[in-house]
Design a protein around this nucleic acid. Sequence first.
DNA 1: TAGGCCATCTGGTCCT
DNA 2: AGGACCAGATGGCCTA
Length: 215
Amino acid sequence: MAPHPSCAPPVQVTHETEQRFPGASDDEVTCVASTPPSPTRVLENCTETEGGACRGASRKLRARRGGRSRPKCELALSKQRRSRRKKANDRERNRMHNLNSALDALRGVLPTFPDDAKLTKIETLRFAHNYIWALTQTLRIADHSLYGLEPLAPPCEELASPDAGSPGDWGSLYSPVSQAGSLSPTASLEDRPGLQAPVSPACLHSGALAFSDFL
DNA sequence: TAGGCCATCTGGTCCT
DNA sequence: AGGACCAGATGGCCTA
């Protein structure tokens, strides 16, 4: 789905040039100083007619390079920038691919029906969050019942207040974070058959819902 | 056709 | 200096 190279925006050199001046190397300074009128600090502060330090440096460089017209240098600088940008793009692409791979792995361990459409990125994250949360609560319930403690869960139909506190708050149908705003799983998941938002662990515990209802 | 999702490019910032 | 990370911009694809 890569944009057509022909449609890709042209590499913007001027902006980067401007940004990189403070740390520019000798070569870069030399190249830019020979650049035709552009909004750069060097060109503003270091013209042929002013600037002692700049003039001195310029003279030095000119002596070293043996010339004042340096189209080759511009070309080299431009090539270097393009090369750096290209490498950065490659790294960024790779990074995003890794991120997507991790997301796919996460999808792989989430309970969904085979015929479900692939979860979007945001759905995957929300659902994983809720799934983990519900499983945690389930374990907690199991522990409590194992040791004969009082069940902490409210009735299934009782929903917690939106600002229910800790992650351990069982009154919540959804984990606290997902309850907030757009993170509510009902917003994005309820219309997906077979991909329900996590049910209350209390309901699981009481048998009001089978675990399969969670899926 | 509008809106959602996605991949990619890009420049900025922070870190090593 | 170079890499990682991030967020904004852009354009393509798909669906209601």
